[in-house]
């Protein structure tokens, strides 16, 4: 940068020098503000405000430097602290929620054992069937698992955080309706119990979409989505492989690159869920509860 070779300078400032070269040369060699030289050419004038002006300018520079330093270095820890505080609050609430859920499950199990003790063997099997269908007890049995996942995110160039330069987050390819279609297909081909990412589906479980994430029973789940269903393994597999949603997902796999695979499993264990007390619905008079219950989840799911 300092002391450029002489011929370069003469070439750049010569009459034939291209404009860009002259500009670059000017930028590199005339680093002093041209105003100083212009002012030096003029007859010297002394004013009383010269010294205070320099004084104020230097004061401003110092103030600016220290303000910028404080802004970037001292405000960052505060921001971090707020973020950490929020994170701890979220995890605390999540832990409290899961603790209460576990408590509720434990109490439900207690209620079940007490009820079993009270009831004689006669109504037992129909009650157990109802428990399985409503999702009140954990179940195990043969079935299928279907796994779909979002395509791997292309590694976007990281913007430097300034507004307008960051990359947009990519929208989710898989939506609630895909998960719902898979679940409905499984109910339709006779699944007896279904769980999505370990969340058991009941007659009142909604699969919905909020912002960018899928909610199952109002709990956020994220990719990969694993749908496990207990039922007749062969029927479930064959029916699912033949279903429109499987074809759709296969197309999406080829075109959009989502992950999609399904397989039969000899033993699956699905967790229980705390079933809400029914406050308004009471058993109807007409059909026997056992025969009605086998079809009730599928009809509720399809209606959503």
């Amino acid at each position: 940068m300092s002391a450029p070779p002489g011929n370069e300078r003469s070439r750049a400032t010569g009459p034939k020098a291209p404009l860009t070269t002259a500009m670059l040369d000017d930028l590199l060699n005339n680093t002093l503000d041209p105003g100083y030289r212009a002012a030096a050419g003029m007859p010297p004038r002394r004013h009383w405000w010269d010294a205070p002006m320099v004084w104020a300018g230097c004061l401003l520079v110092g103030l600016l430097l220290v303000t910028a330093y404080q802004q970037s270095h001292l405000s960052a820890p505060a921001r971090d602290a707020a973020r950490k505080d929020l994170i701890t609050r979220i995890t605390n609430l999540q832990q409290a929620g899961s603790r209460m859920d576990g408590q509720a499950k434990q109490l439900a199990a207690e209620v079940n054992t007490l009820r079993d003790r009270q009831l004689s063997s006669q109504g037992d099997s129909s009650l157990r069937n109802l428990d399985v269908v409503s999702g009140g007890v954990a179940v195990r049995g043969p079935g299928v698992t279907i796994e779909v996942s979002e395509p791997a995110q292309p590694q976007a160039t990281v913007g430097n955080g300034r507004a307008g330069t960051g990359s947009q987050p990519q929208a989710a390819v898989l939506h609630d309706r895909d998960i719902r279609a898979v679940v409905n297909q499984l109910w339709a081909s006779g699944a007896e119990a279904i769980a999505v990412n370990g969340i058991r589906l009941t007659a009142t479980t909604a699969i919905r979409f909020a912002g960018e994430s899928i909610l199952v029973d109002f709990q956020t789940i994220s990719t990969p989505y694993t749908i496990s269903a207990i039922g007749n393994r062969d029927t479930l597999l064959l029916d699912f492989a033949d279903s429109p949603i499987a074809r759709q997902l296969k197309t999406a796999q080829a075109v959009l690159g989502i992950g999609f695979k399904f397989s039969g499993k000899s033993v699956l264990t699905l967790p229980s869920v705390t079933v809400a007390q029914q406050s308004y619905a009471s058993p109807g008079a007409s059909p026997s509860p056992a025969s009605k219950s086998s079809s009730s989840p599928s009809s509720t799911e399809t209606s959503r």
Partner: peptide
């Protein structure tokens, strides 16, 4: 901050060159 540093270094250099001018310094800053 970078612009202010530029003005400050320019001022110091002008001072050493003997052509410092208060008005130019403040206005350029």
């Amino acid at each position: 901050v970078v612009a202010a540093l530029d003005a400050v270094f320019g001022g110091i250099r002008a001072r050493l060159d003997g052509i410092f001018d208060a008005k130019v310094f403040v206005v350029s800053f």
